[in-house]
Amino acid sequence: MATTESAFRARAFRARAKHSSTVWALRLLLLLIVVGAWLYGTGPGEISFLILPPLGEVFSAIGGLVTTQVFWTALGVTVFEMLVAFLLAAVVGVSLGFFLSRTPLRAQASEPLLSWGYMFPVVLLYPLFLLWVGVGIGSKIAYAATAAFFPIAYNTLRGLRSVDEKYLKVGVAFGASRLATDRHIKAGAARPMILSGLRIGVSVVMISVVLAELLGSNAGLGYELQRAASTLRLPDEYGIALLLLVVAVTLQRVLELALRPRRPGQKAPSRATEPAAQLDE
């Protein structure tokens, strides 16, 4: 009950801005600055049209792109790669996390390995993935799944290791089997952390797939972007980049909503403070 008072006081100190009109005005300002800079650059700023095409041309390029079959096929390839890579990384990462958390020794021995894998710059391996798996979609999936595996497995293991003993006592007291303990106790208690690992995995997969397509591929939006760049079709290049941004943000939103803890009392660690910021290109 003192909560109302203390909440009030907390608000006084860390007032969350609620004036949405001002917020939108500020965002609009940023947009205007970007657009203004662009218009200035292509106009009086005299930036060469070989670097920055006029905004109008980019928009008409976008309009053209979305009516072509090529674009939608490329989009399909990219999204397919992302989903398969994510599923692979999630299944392997989460099950390995459970497996490793079964005994203290296993957990202790493996946790640093996973965290080192987390720190490892997987992107440097991509040229080798091309060598091993080929230039097709296989190398994108393999690379993105590898990159996303580590954060998922690491966070799963960390989550499972920090399950409060009091819950496990209940399991022991009621004679729960290992599988039942995994399913009904550990999975539930570690859920927020596992989901947080999966959300990181979503971002890592998206980042990795696009990067891989840019670095070497023969299909997908990243490939189209790279091709537009190398053939100096600038409006297309900017257009695809913007479309890709929209696709990535949309996909991220959708998957994140799907991976948000829904049960009351299991608040997700705030998106900002989750261990996350461990994302890499």
Partner: peptide, 17 residues
């Protein structure tokens, strides 16, 4: 009783509120 605003009074007395 809890929630009666006694802390609020104190915070006013100290100039915090």
């Amino acid at each position: 009783p809890s929630g009666c605003g006694k802390s609020t009074v104190l915070h006013c007395m100290g100039g915090l509120l």
